[in-house]
Design a protein around this nucleic acid. Structure first.
Lengths: 158, 158
DNA sequence: TCTAGGTAATGCGATATCGTATTACTATTA
DNA sequence: TAATAGTAATACGATATCGCATTACCTAGA
């Protein structure tokens, strides 16, 4: 396996594929995707994780730190430092919840929306490439991913 | 959303699903998967990333640090510290490449195989749950993931 | 064989992640 | 309404990640 490569093949090809299982495969793919996004949007000053968070916030869904933590399966402390960082950048604002003074929701500022937009512009070519390469199977892929997320959440919650 | 929830639904349900695109979906699912694995195997002393690396090594494919970096789409410096850490644990050994004195391959020691085995035992129930819940679509899911990885690698390489 | 350019791996430093313990508040029960 | 338990968020500290610069080695060209 390590001595020579018959064709132009990627590392991923050479390794598995018997090793694989769904969870492992997700892990592996996501590393590549994460790197792809990081590289694509680097010059915007956001990384893949940050871009994703900015994206939900930009979508208009009000999110508390706890919501964010559940949504992205991150520990509360991690979300805390994200919010602090984003706020320091002037990209995010905390909006007090009048019903519960411990809590607040996180909102993008105008500057935050701009940053997200800029990152989005860098992101789109990469996404287009992938979508194009996937062709009709793209929808199917997303379906499988959503299903998987549902299953995983079930397990984590039980 | 913070006021009330109609059913027993997960956070993921409430958010999207218009926001989504393949890359974003992968990112999101992988966070959940990563957390799931972390939690499942925590008591083994390995985390999800480490378990994955131990797994390739356990599979018998000889891997240099560069191979590992390519395979898991991580920067060389990150792999370097992984190897150092694993070696410190006594789980891994460096085997010099006689052809190239800069290089070496990484091998699991007996202790490393044991650690991997222990983590594997904790991992399996989680995997079984997911596989069972996915039923026949599991194979299809893996297929989609492998395809995606291929596409992403193509983009990264061009 | 010398030199220039490429590649494998790492040291170091900056910053990110996340576990443990804590604070501040809300809900529940009596 | 006091006491207890539960929940939202964070401070702090330990460790991980990764970019930049560097070392050591290999390869190609003259």
């Amino acid at each position: 396996m390590s001595e020579h490569s018959p064709q132009a093949e990627t590392v991923a090809d050479k390794i598995d594929p018997g090793l694989g299982n769904v969870l492992f495969d997700v892990w592996l793919v996501s590393r590549a995707v994460h790197a792809l996004i990081d590289d694509a949007i680097r010059s915007s000053g956001l990384d893949a994780d940050e871009f994703a968070i900015y994206s939900v916030l930009a979508s208009g869904t009000p999110m508390t730190p706890s919501d964010l933590a559940d949504w992205m399966a991150a520990p509360p402390t991690t979300v805390s430092s994200y919010v602090k960082r984003f706020e320091r950048r002037g990209h995010v604002r905390r909006v007090q919840n009048p019903e519960d003074r411990r809590s607040y929701s996180v909102e993008l500022t105008a500057a935050g929306r701009e940053a997200h937009h800029a990152a989005g512009a860098l992101f789109r070519p990469a996404l287009d490439h992938v979508d194009k390469a996937l062709e009709e199977s793209a929808g199917d892929t997303r379906q499988r991913l959503l299903e998987l997320r549902r299953v995983v959440d079930t397990f984590a919650t039980d």
